[in-house]
Write a protein that binds this DNA or RNA. Structure first.
Length: 111
DNA sequence: ATTCTGACGTGGG
DNA sequence: CCCCACGCCAGAA
């Protein structure tokens, strides 16, 4: 596992997501410079299972849909975690997404 | 090397 | 907003 692999970069960003905030795969990809590799970000989250410090539950797709909840052990853990942070979720979709949205490109300093 | 896949995004309708 | 199709690219087999 290369320390500079895409996964590691993703982890770094995802770890910086503040409590009660969410972001999208595309936003992370963009921040990393990948731009169109949003899918890779999500895929990187798969490997994030090996790294519990990565709050993957705060990463959703651009619609605010919890697309990856199925990978959280098969239960609605992801939704509960987000609701625990004050985020309302209905039918796997985050309500008031703009309120909880957190853009690394804006909130975090550039490289 | 090739092939396939994937927790996505965007654009057109 | 929904639906459909294409693109995108890193990693695993």
């Amino acid at each position: 596992m290369k320390e500079d692999s895409f996964f590691l970069k993703v982890y770094q960003v995802v770890r910086k997501i503040p409590y009660g905030k969410v972001t999208s795969y595309g936003a992370i990809a963009k921040y990393l410079g990948a731009g169109r590799s949003a899918r890779m970000v999500g895929w990187a989250m798969n490997a994030s299972h090996n790294d519990p410090s990565v709050p993957a539950h705060r990463v959703v797709n651009k619609k605010g849909l919890l697309t990856g909840k199925h990978h959280f052990g098969g239960s609605n853990i992801m939704q509960q975690l987000l609701e625990n942070e004050g985020i309302k979720i209905i039918d796997n979709q985050i309500q008031n997404l703009e309120t909880h949205y957190w853009d690394p490109q804006v909130e975090l300093p550039p490289f």
